[in-house]
Write a protein that binds this DNA or RNA. Structure first.
Lengths: 207, 207
DNA sequence: ATTCGACTTGTCCACATGGACAACTTATGC
DNA sequence: GCATAAGTTGTCCATGTGGACAAGTCGAAT
């Protein structure tokens, strides 16, 4: 992750520790890829190893088991996936958030990395450890969105009599739902749904 | 499905055809259960057979393969799952739909049958046949919701300058997203999010 | 130079999986 | 009655699976 050398290719010889870190990272990334591609339950450690370009035994060495590997890979991937497209949410508006999300869906339709998000949420249903750790992440994002909403309510662009936290919950759900439909149905027009959502949010504010 | 006898127990002897239909139905129901429980990729034909109370070989006999079985089971289950809680949408309001959905989520949190919906949507990502057939269903529901919205717009309870179809898309996504979060995060307050959604939809209408 | 420890690699195993199928039971049409 | 077709059941097999592990490689510390 945070190595200071330019070379990161697995074949480039470095210290043991560095080499280890590199293959470990490769395995994690391959795992995240495959979760999105095949679904949480459709991933095999062998497929992960193959995609990462390492022998199957390397997985056993670096991770305690499949569950731990998937959890770690998924949470790391989601964190970067969420942080990357929303770099500065400080002065953002709900409008920005919705737009960023919508654009992210469209842009990412070719690579299907976003499916990871839904896969993780469904996996949370069956994996308590994952659920606990993901809940933290989620709460964090919900709180951030609620703050954005409150700021806009003070500015008057969003009706003040709507509970900001509840609205944040509804909006996050709506965005994830749009992601879900975008992934599942080829004909789903996410951008148009996003516009409708925008219209709902701002219809009574002083634009 | 449409048998006229009261007895439907598998052990009760009936005609060959009836017995066949019964075990077939048992397999389908077990399959739908297990998809919701274990995830699309986590289901095995053996587990299905065990849950249905039939020997493993029965699955091979009644279905061409695992994929066909899962598809058929999932689509049938979803159809009843959607139709059942919304019996008469004819004179319904958006309010009704949101309320019904929210209540459905809470009620169903113990049995986790709703997870099936999300599992199917994710499976659509990887199964073209399933995607095509599910898209029809989805389109049907979206159209119905759009009609409800238009009716309310004529009555004036929903702002008329919002595109009904787009709003329907956004609302369905929001509801599915709320389902997703309700399933994944134990602390998620779906009812409150539903209220916020309601407030958004009706905030400018003449209640 | 030698030892040491971290990482790698290939192989092994016990087990689950999906699917096929032959041998059976049993209602139904003749 | 009896042949027949539909449904059932147990068993078999090739393949995939997760995990373990011993032998090997190689740089680092002494």
């Amino acid at each position: 992750m945070d190595k200071s050398n330019g070379q990161s290719d697995r074949t480039t010889v470095k210290t043991s520790a560095e080499r280890g870190e590199t293959t470990r990272a490769a395995i994690l990334e391959a795992a995240a890829d495959l979760i999105a591609e095949m679904g949480w339950g459709g991933v095999s450690t062998r497929a992960i190893a193959e995609r990462a370009g390492v022998p199957h035994g390397a997985v056993s060495y670096h991770f305690r088991g499949k569950g731990e590997l998937l959890r770690e890979a998924a949470l790391a991937a989601i964190d970067t996936l969420f942080t990357e497209p929303l770099p500065a949410l400080d002065n953002a508006t709900v409008d920005d958030v919705i737009a960023a999300a919508a654009q992210w869906y469209v842009q990412g339709l070719t690579e299907r990395r976003q499916a990871l998000v839904v896969e993780v949420m469904m996996a949370c249903t069956r994996d308590e450890k994952l659920r606990d750790r993901f809940a933290e992440l989620l709460d964090q994002y919900r709180t951030m969105l609620a703050d954005v909403i409150r700021a806009e309510q003070e500015r008057g662009s969003i009706a003040a009599d709507i509970d900001a936290t509840a609205l944040a919950s509804a909006l996050i759900a709506a965005l994830d739902g749009m992601l879900l439909h975008t992934l599942a149905a080829p004909g789903y027009d996410g951008a148009r749904a996003a516009d409708a959502l925008n219209a709902l949010v701002y219809q009574r504010g002083t634009r």
